[in-house]
């Protein structure tokens, strides 16, 4: 268990990490939102159909594969990001972690979310907001560890991480399907 002093330092580092994750996620959301403009000439029902088909494919893939094999960067974020201090390092680590494509992506949920931002044709501000929310969510487990974690936290999480990845894919896809139906009016 972390001491009070240790937890205080961890929380400050987490705040830098949270800021980085939020910025990283917002960056990805904004980039996807900009690219979605290229698809805007296509009618929304057509884009929704493509989104539905791709999302279904990704869900089935995630549920069937023992380890998800989709295009991704197969390297961890290098420790060198902390070379210029813990706070700056925490922020930079967060940016890379929160953007969703600079490290391992073991769940199809983020691919489905990215496709939604790309194909749903939403205002750019909402694309950035959804990306930022994704980044914030990526930092939550670290906060849980700091506030509530006990020795062996990582090992316990590792024992059911595939359930988490697959469950996240199913939940995210169901909610995005609902959101798409609302957009279609």
């Amino acid at each position: 268990m972390a001491s009070v002093r240790g937890r205080s330092i961890q929380l400050r580092l987490w705040l830098a990490f949270l800021a980085g994750c939020t910025v990283g996620g917002a960056f990805t959301g904004t980039a996807l939102g900009v690219f979605s403009g290229l698809l805007s000439p296509l009618p929304l029902p057509l884009r929704a159909g493509v989104l539905g088909a791709l999302a279904l494919f990704l869900v089935v893939l995630d549920l069937r594969q023992p380890v998800l094999r989709l295009p991704q960067r197969s390297q961890l974020i290098p420790q060198e990001v902390f070379a210029r201090g813990m706070a700056r390092g925490g922020f930079r680590f967060g940016v890379e972690y929160g953007c969703g494509f600079r490290t391992l992506v073991p769940s199809a949920a983020s691919y489905v979310a990215a496709l939604f931002v790309l194909l749903a044709g939403m205002p750019l501000g909402w694309a950035a907001c959804l990306g930022a929310a994704f980044g914030v969510a990526r930092s939550v487990a670290v906060l849980q560890y700091i506030l509530l974690g006990r020795p062996g936290w990582q090992q316990f999480l590792s024992s059911h991480t595939r359930w988490l990845e697959r469950g996240g894919t199913v939940v995210a896809t169901a909610l995005l399907a609902w959101s798409t139906l609302l957009l279609l009016g």
Partner: peptide
């Protein structure tokens, strides 16, 4: 009435949580 961003926000949070195993 539920506006479309509400389930979308819940979904991206779910997507972020789903990747927690790679923390």
């Amino acid at each position: 009435a539920v506006p479309w961003p509400v389930p979308a926000l819940l979904a991206v949070v779910a997507a972020g949580l789903a990747l927690s195993g790679s923390t």
